[in-house]
Write a protein that binds this DNA or RNA. Structure first.
Length: 248
DNA sequence: ATTCTTACA
DNA sequence: TGTAAGGA
């Protein structure tokens, strides 16, 4: 708690913990002031509002990636700083160090998924970029390493730099709403998977339909049909729901 | 002399 | 986590 508060202070007014105004002439690392810059151990610690010892402690627990080593000195960058801020924020939200460590591990594993998300063609679904803290807020108590790994496995979540990216605003909102109402996130994701399978089948149907008629009707592209397909599927879904409800 | 690690409390 | 001691 003390740590997190100091970080909060540092972020807010730019002054970190114990009055470190000793005239060594070292520059303060300000919020987003110098991206791409590298930090020495002490600089990093000061920028994050924690002690050098704590940084080392986190590193021993695998909470932050190893620094770049240049002979004797360890160089840290913005990623490390961002990670430290994230750790502090998650700690403040009641996460345990152990839990954060596992989260970090799952986070590292999904690093390469970012490309999968980035190179998306035209889609109406807008990706949502959010920090680990924001994610923890949206799914209070459900942000476990297991769930995080599963979400990445399913392709809902990826990472971009130090941010997390959800592939779809609407899916994110829907799942967050369900979780807020008490549905376990795992259940939501499993249901989502099954729905996706059917959606894939529908998409395949649309594609083959397009191909079948492409010869005679060149203006019949998938993108032309997208809004039509959407309204057809939505209408059929409504009707299907009606049938189930009325007969039950 | 400085920066970082190891070891102990 | 603080701190003292020691390697490079």
């Amino acid at each position: 708690m003390g740590v997190a508060e100091e970080v909060a202070d540092a972020v807010t007014d730019g002054t970190a913990g114990t009055g470190g105004t000793s005239g060594s002439g070292a520059e303060d690392a300000r919020e987003g002031g110098t991206p791409g810059r590298e930090y020495r151990m002490e600089e990093l610690a000061r920028a994050a509002g924690i002690t050098v010892r704590t940084v080392r402690f986190y590193r021993e627990r695998g909470l932050i990636p190893p620094p770049r080593r240049e002979g004797r000195i360890a160089w840290y960058d913005d990623h490390h700083l961002a990670r430290l801020r994230t750790i502090a924020a998650l700690l403040e939200r009641g996460h345990t160090l152990q839990g954060i460590a596992e989260l970090a591990e799952a986070f590292e594993k999904g690093r390469d998924v970012a490309e999968l998300l980035g190179i998306d063609g035209p889609s109406e679904e807008t990706p949502v970029r959010l920090t680990p803290e924001e994610l923890a807020d949206r799914f209070a108590g459900e942000v476990t390493p297991e769930n995080l790994a599963a979400a990445m496995e399913f392709g809902y979540l990826g990472t971009d730099g130090d941010d997390i990216v959800h592939i779809s605003r609407r899916l994110l909102d829907a799942s967050a709403t369900l979780v807020r109402k008490g549905v376990p996130l795992v259940a939501v994701m499993e249901a989502g998977q099954r729905i996706r399978e059917h959606a894939d089948a529908l998409a395949e149907l649309l594609l083959s339909f397009t191909l079948e008629h492409a010869a005679e009707h060149p203006e019949l592209t998938v993108e032309e049909l997208r809004p039509l397909a959407k309204s057809v599927v939505e209408a059929e879904l409504s009707l299907a729901l009606d049938r189930r409800l009325h007969q039950a």
